[in-house]
Design a protein around this nucleic acid. Structure first.
Length: 945
RNA sequence: GCUCGAAUGGUGGAAUGGUAGACACGAAGGACUUAAAAUCCUUUGGCCAGUGAUGGCCGUGCGAGUUCGAGUCUCGCUUCGAGCACCA
């Protein structure tokens, strides 16, 4: 019987849908397993062969776990808000909701063809009001929360208000934008608006005036992870720094927990390391400096407190508030000019052109240890947003300070014995300290670091500084708060309105606050975000009255927030929603959450390491503090699938002609390489007729061929429409079937590695499936499976396969599991195995990889239910046992020949027999045996002299 | 610059410290066929010797080391990839 994959796959995809094979419900009687893919943004281009890679890998795991008796949750949905749909709307006037809907339909169609075991009843879409209800709700809760450092948890803002009423800011240990000080009496004397303004300093979701990444081309602000090399990640438009009022999330409050949490989760080291870098914990010392002839004091942050005796100047960030206080009248003009000049340089210019610039403020700081006067400079190499925006410069041991000192002729004082600082600074934290203090100087309290190692010196200085009230030990993080507003239309509206200039929440019972219809997607004429075009906002019918009462007071209508939430808002808690997608009363019900808990296996690209994977961990920790999520970490194990790159093909057009020259001859002409659609190229040979038909301007093309063929050049590039190298999974499925596609994608290489797509090898996977199919069917089309006792050999083949496949699935090493099947099929065919007790378990093993064909075989074998409910075959070692073992015999590690021994032969017997064998005798001639090493089952090594 | 990862045939890639190159692609040869496709079989790391079966030597980026034995472990380089990057 022929392997008719088209019929089989159509049949089973329909069966799965009607039988609801993959729908799951929480079932406390069964162990749960939660598998999740990063949900896709449904772009207009549809899926290419790279997208399903991770889905296939997780699908295999999900099916495997199900076969092992787990209750497997494997949901799918769409991250449906995003810039491309909106850009398209601006260009065409087509509403993003419509294009998004179309794209989702197309994605679904493509996904269905590959045969995933998704529970589509749990589908979520971030742009669905029933879904973003809970995105808005989470925002409301963040707005109404502050972060308590002492209890390491978010707390309701009412507790903070109670604290203010009782003690003001005294004894407060909370995350805050800036340190405020007031008494209870002062708090009570404030107006409501003033109090709201103060509270904004503490809220986890807060409106802050911050420097933002403003992208003029996109007309919106971007988060740090959305800016790469000074241009926007999407579209590559320039980004400038601008001070704006924006919604922010106080992610920085969770920095330590985000760092600590990494230790307990099973992610790759590289992603953990990336996150650690991004969080950027740095333990150091804050030291206070006074200013000569002034009352001003200021604080600096350093990780090298031990270098205090080598400070030869101080540097302030240009944006620092201290600049105004410390600039002397004589220096004012020069400083102002410098500040002007720095302001004009964009982030991008500062990165591209790392000139040393700076200006002297005119003031001198006082070294608290020696009383030395130290000049205070201003330079843009010091950042306002990190530490205190001021540093002590130690040119001998910091390369940036060194460059600055050399440029401005400032002194360099080395502090490490043997360090040569004539050419460059000595930055390493090693060596023995000297000059601390230098000879003849008497430091405060006789303090000296001389003779200590750098590490000891750092510790000693910290202790001294703390004990003498000169400063304190301080941990700084590089992680900044996330900027949470975008001046766009296609995103979640904020449940916020403004009254007397202060933002207030739309009452929670009125959520969702639905995105209103607009006809124009550009900003309004007055420069407001696109939502300013809305004439009528969409209210929840039942709550219309409540909302309107909140928003309308004495005939005065209060304006709503017009910016929308960024892309990561909707993707930050979707994994919780899948647990309980229809719940109208909560993001996730406590029972559903207590059962599914957290994602056991999360599969997705590593490009989200500093975006989604940080934000959702933060979001989850916040919900954990609220008691909504029962696990502190959202994703227990993370597997990163690599990117599938495209293999582009090129044709070479001779300049100013319509003649194309084949690859081997192109160097003889002046040619322009042009991308050509890979779908009209086979093994780098161009289909000339298809090429002429591809584009009208090529209809009359001429060709210069080699050996009668046109050979194309090639390159590995990103798979993208513009490179004409997109390979569509539909085409593969049409030609070879979904099972072949699945198998082949897994066979391509390790799941976590990036690799180019190469359609050439796919025949091998198809041939394998056909061979497997033929194990079951005779030439007459009948099933050949019998109830005969299996041969010993067949059982060995089967159990070798069980062991290998089980281990490989557990280790996500699918690329080695697939060959194991190929070998097994080859062996079973040779053994002419027809035994049901071997072939049935074989089908169960193969089912996660090639579900359609296995369902068909399972049914042919007389089973009613789905093969994915069949229990996973148990491995039994006894079938692998042999009567005899073949050992390789080596001399001084070099293998020479092999010998067979009985399986139960002792080490001594093997040793004796080996030395006595004629083969060994040949090698032992004239040599002396030093030692014989026997590794049972593997090798005999004879050491000779 | 710092951090993490990688380097194995023509290609993708296998190898708990124990016969390197599984499996697949590609290539070459053969069978079937009028022919092609499809299918099946054989060969396929390099060099040397031999008509031949076969035998010998070399071989996992480079250089050391540990070990009876290293693709695998340790140290030092080189190259490539990824992340961070005036973060004090």
């Amino acid at each position: 019987m022929e392997y008719n994959f088209r019929e089989i796959e159509k049949k089973w995809q329909k069966e799965w849908a009607t039988r609801q094979t993959y729908h799951v419900e929480a079932d406390p009687a069964k162990k749960k397993f939660y598998v999740l893919n990063m949900f896709p943004y449904p772009s207009g281009a549809g899926l290419h062969v790279g997208h399903p890679l991770g889905y296939i890998a997780s699908d295999i795991y999900a099916r495997y776990k199900r076969s092992q008796g787990y209750n497997v949750l494997n949901p799918m949905g769409y991250d449906a808000y995003g810039l491309p749909a909106e850009q398209y709307a601006i260009q065409t006037g087509q509403h993003p909701a419509i294009t998004t809907e179309q794209n989702i339909a197309r994605y679904r169609e493509q996904l269905d063809k590959i045969g995933f075991c998704f529970d589509w009843q749990r589908e979520v879409r971030t742009c669905d009001p029933k879904y973003y209800h809970w995105t808005q709700w989470a925002f409301s809760r963040m707005f109404n929360s502050f972060y308590c450092n002492a209890c390491r948890s978010a707390q309701p803002i009412s507790r903070l208000v109670a604290h203010f009423e009782e003690k003001g800011t005294e004894g407060l240990d909370v995350a805050q934008s800036e340190e405020l000080r007031f008494t209870a009496a002062e708090w009570k004397a404030m107006t409501e608006e003033e109090q709201l303004q103060v509270l904004m300093n503490y809220r986890i979701a807060y409106l802050g005036e911050t420097m933002v990444n403003w992208c003029p081309a996109l007309g919106t602000v971007l988060a740090n992870d959305e800016v790469v090399d000074g241009v926007s990640e999407r579209g590559g438009h320039p980004v400038v720094q601008k001070k704006m009022k924006q919604w922010c999330l106080r992610v920085s409050a969770y920095a330590q927990r985000l760092l600590d949490g990494l230790d307990g989760i099973d992610w790759t080291d590289s992603i953990k390391e990336t996150q650690r870098n991004w969080i950027g914990r740095s333990e150091g010392t804050e030291m206070e400096f006074s200013v000569k002839d002034s009352d001003v004091k200021f604080t600096i942050f350093t990780t090298r407190a031990d270098t205090i005796f080598g400070v030869t100047f101080m540097v302030l960030a240009p944006e620092s508030e201290l600049v105004q206080q410390l600039t002397t009248p004589e220096q004012r003009a020069e400083v102002e000019a410098y500040l002007e000049a720095t302001k004009k340089r964009t982030e991008r210019e500062r990165i591209a052109d790392r000139r040393v610039t700076g200006v002297f403020s005119g003031s001198y700081a006082v070294n608290p240890f020696t009383g030395d006067a130290i000049p205070v400079w201003i330079s843009d190499y010091v950042l306002a947003g990190y530490g205190t925006g001021a540093i002590m410069a130690v040119p001998a041991h910091d390369s940036r300070d060194y460059a600055f000192a050399r440029h401005f002729g400032l002194p360099v004082v080395p502090l490490i014995e043997g360090a040569d600082v004539s050419e460059e600074s000595f930055d390493a934290k090693e060596g023995t300290v000297m000059n601390s203090p230098r000879e003849g100087v008497n430091a405060l309290d006789g303090f000296s670091l001389n003779g200590l190692s750098v590490k000891e010196a750092i510790a000693a200085t910290k202790q001294f500084v703390t004990a003498h009230g000169l400063g304190r030990v301080k941990v700084n993080f590089r992680l900044r708060d996330a900027i949470f507003s975008r001046q766009r239309y296609w995103g979640e509206p904020f449940p916020v309105y403004y009254k007397n200039g202060q933002p207030r929440l739309v009452p929670e019972e009125c959520l969702p606050l639905e995105l209103p219809e607009v006809t124009k997607f550009l900003p309004t004429e007055t420069g407001e975000p696109p939502l300013g075009n809305a004439t009528r906002w969409a209210w929840n019918e039942e709550t219309r009255e409540v909302v309107e009462n909140a928003l309308i007071d004495n005939e005065k209508v209060f304006p709503l927030e017009l910016s929308t939430m960024p892309g990561f808002a909707g993707s930050s808690a979707y994994y919780l929603r899948y647990m309980d997608p229809a719940n109208a009363a909560a993001l996730v019900g406590p029972e559903a959450n207590a059962y599914w808990r957290q994602v056991d296996l999360y599969v997705g690209g590593s490009e989200h390491a500093t975006g989604h994977l940080i934000y959702s961990r933060f979001w989850n920790k916040f919900l954990f503090d609220l008691g909504v999520a029962c696990e502190d970490e959202p994703f227990r194990k993370l597997v990163n699938q690599g990117m599938i790159q495209g293999r582009s093909n090129f044709v070479y057009r001779i300049k100013d002609t319509n003649t194309f020259v084949s690859l081997g001859l192109k160097d003889q002409y002046d040619v322009t390489p042009l991308h050509v659609d890979v779908n009209i190229v086979q093994n780098d040979q161009l289909d000339l007729e298809a090429f002429k038909a591809w584009r009208p301007e090529y209809a009359t093309a001429d060709f210069i061929l080699e050996d009668g063929k046109y050979i194309c050049g090639w390159a590995i590039e990103k798979m993208s429409k513009s490179m004409f190298n997109v390979v569509n999974p539909d085409m593969i499925v049409e030609k070879y079937g979904a099972d072949t596609l699945r198998l082949y994608e897994m066979f391509l290489g390790p799941i976590n590695q990036s690799k180019p797509w190469d359609s050439n090898g796919i025949d091998g996977s198809f041939r394998f499936l056909r061979k497997a199919w033929n194990l079951f069917w005779g030439k007459d089309g009948g099933l050949t499976v019998t109830d005969a006792e299996p041969s010993r050999e067949s059982l060995k083949t089967l159990h070798k396969l069980i062991q290998k496949v089980t281990d490989d699935i557990e280790a996500f090493s699918y690329n080695t599991a697939v060959p194991a099947f190929m070998i097994a099929v080859g062996e079973l065919a040779q053994q002419k195995c027809t035994s049901r007790s071997v072939l049935e378990p074989f089908v169960v093993l193969l089912a996660p990889f090639a579900p359609h064909i296995c369902e068909e075989l399972w049914q042919a074998l007389g089973h009613e239910g789905s093969v994915c409910d069949a229990p996973w075959p148990a491995f039994d070692e006894q079938y692998l046992k042999e009567d005899s073992v073949t050992l390789s015999v080596s001399f001084n590690g070099k293998t020479r020949f092999t010998l067979d021994f009985p399986a139960d032969a002792s080490k001594e017997a093997i040793q004796e027999a080996t030395l006595a064998s004629p083969q060994a005798q040949k090698y032992l001639e004239g040599k002396q045996v030093v030692k014989v090493i026997v590794v049972p089952g593997r090798i005999v090594n004879i050491v000779v002299k």
